[in-house]
């Protein structure tokens, strides 16, 4: 009898070096059904981590398991449950929104009639229904970001990995995206995201990880991070700055 795995994502000893080490022996676990926010300064290794977690970048060392399945040993099976939304939305300018969503669904082998229904529902939820037949090259930045999110959700992934999902969105669009992500976790989905907007992480995330020079220097709920930073009632911004400064001092 197989034991149900409670981990949506497990990164063990993950390392990647370009000109300098980008990610350095990272161990990180995301539980099923939670929203996990990965924070870090520019160049801390967040995007590299996400790209390795989604199989877009081969790590120099370490392993990635998605719902217990080794990503490198069984990539097709592991990616079946996964969706990735990069910081720059990857859209085909010469496809309409509907065509794009049907194509995205096709990549996960969703039948086209089912894909069309899901696409219509997602477009309506994100306020894009009126633009469904428009080429995506005519979309604004916010519309593109929302459409890319719809593309990530169309096959109903169990784990969605988002790199700066709220960048460039106005307040209304940001609210729509946040609602959609919370809806996703409410039905058992898991979210791993990076963000520079600490307020969003503070309000949305169940757990937060802080990455510094490719290492995890702190993780847990906001309360746990406050305790670690010895700053009771402090905002996430204060906690983040305290922990990263302390790490810099230790390293220096």
């Amino acid at each position: 009898m197989s034991v149900p795995n409670n981990h949506a994502l497990e990164l063990c000893g993950l390392s990647k070096k370009f000109e300098q080490p980008a990610v350095n022996g990272l161990d990180l676990t995301v539980q099923r059904g939670e929203i996990y926010a990965l924070l870090g300064a520019n160049g801390a290794g967040k995007t590299t981590t996400l790209r390795m977690a989604t199989g877009l970048l081969l790590p120099d060392a370490g392993s990635v398991r998605i719902f217990g399945i080794d990503l490198h040993a069984q990539p097709q099976a592991a990616k079946q449950a996964l969706a990735y939304l990069p910081d720059e939305p990857l859209l085909y300018g010469k496809l309409t929104a509907l065509e794009y969503l049907v194509f995205m669904a096709g990549l996960w082998s969703v039948p086209s009639d089912q894909a069309a229904a899901s696409a219509a529902e997602l477009l309506a939820l994100l306020g894009l229904a009126a633009h469904a037949q428009q080429l995506t090259e005519t979309y604004s930045r916010g519309m593109k970001q929302k459409l890319a999110l719809a593309g990530a959700l169309i096959h109903q992934p169990s784990l969605i990995v988002l790199d700066e999902p709220l960048t460039g969105l106005d307040a209304h669009a940001a609210r729509q995206v946040k609602d959609l992500l919370q809806r996703h976790t409410a039905v058992g989905g898991t979210v791993l995201m990076t963000t520079h907007i600490l307020d969003v992480a503070e309000r949305m995330a169940d757990r937060i990880g802080i990455l510094q020079q490719g290492r995890l220097i702190g993780q847990g709920s906001l309360e746990q991070l406050r305790a670690r930073a010895q700053q009771r009632d402090a905002s996430l911004e204060d906690v983040f700055l305290r922990l990263t400064e302390r790490d810099n001092e230790t390293a220096g």
Binding site: L56, P75, Q76, A77, K79, A83, Y84, L90, M104, L107
Partner: peptide, 14 residues
């Protein structure tokens, strides 16, 4: 064309 990431994170075999 930079759309390979879109395809490579899907379950479609490389």
């Amino acid at each position: 064309r930079s759309d390979l990431d879109l395809l490579l994170c899907s379950p479609v075999p490389g």
